[in-house]
Design a protein around this nucleic acid. Structure first.
Lengths: 141, 141
DNA sequence: TCCCATTTGTGCGTATGTATC
DNA sequence: GGATACATACGCACAAATGGG
């Protein structure tokens, strides 16, 4: 049996939405290292019972973290804190212009991009190249 | 009265999730210009009745587009196709390293960043600067 | 000022499907 | 087969913000 709020993420008196409070709480635990990269979050069911909210409320909180690129969900394994990826250092040539945006679903599939990870678009001489933000750093020599 | 599927976004026989079908459909309408930048999407209620699905299903589709940076929701006005922002061209100095990621909630507030919009992080000489992806392009001279 | 209609936000409960171990 | 855990989907109710009359 789980004691609701033994770990107390939720303040029932707060005006702040419950799913936001839970997202804040998980985000803080990730930030301070309590939930380290690679760590598995508690299950949605556990979190919902622990905090005395519906599972859908927990799901919304996790969806927020996913969109922020903080966690990644592997079904039905669970949700995990994202780990830093090996980073490729790419040299930028003169005349290049760099932009960033979220990838389309096709680009996500094609380049195997996790949800919540943006891409870098480098344009030069009328052509543009795509780099996955997670695994790329661009350098100006 | 709305005739479900008079506009037919949903194929009930498809095993593709309904919210994904609706997201695909809206994404396509945005891509082909039928829903131009600044245009207002139909309300969640209208879309749900039009497609014969629950409002929560439509909301999930729209949340997807929001995370992709395609639309932006202004409550209680509605959801709108995002417009291209005036772009500032920033020159990159030698020795700079550029990365991209999603902003934290604090960064989003501080820099007024719409959901679904990544940021550019330029690091140089131990210091790093943040640029909003939506309104910034970096140039190598 | 007040009321109302519209629209998104929040939150719940329930049920069923699907993938993994 | 069973247990676990996430995914999909529905329905409901009420809150909050905005604009019109």
């Amino acid at each position: 049996m789980i004691d609701p709020n033994s770990d107390g993420a939720i303040d029932p008196n707060s005006d702040r939405a419950r799913h936001r409070q839970i997202a804040d709480w998980l985000r803080a635990r990730i930030a301070n290292g309590e939930l380290a990269p690679g760590a598995k979050l508690d299950s949605e069911k556990y979190l919902s019972q622990q905090n005395g909210v519906a599972r859908s409320t927990v799901r919304e909180a996790i969806a927020t973290l996913r969109a922020e690129g903080l966690v990644e969900t592997r079904r039905p394994k669970g949700t995990f804190v994202r780990e830093k990826q090996p980073e490729e250092l790419v040299d930028l040539k003169g005349g290049s212009v760099v932009r960033t945006r979220m990838p389309s679903p096709e680009e996500r599939r094609k380049h195997d991009v996790t949800r919540g990870v943006p891409v870098l678009v480098v344009e030069r001489a009328g052509k543009s190249k795509l780099y996955v933000g997670d695994r790329t750093a661009l350098r100006v020599r």
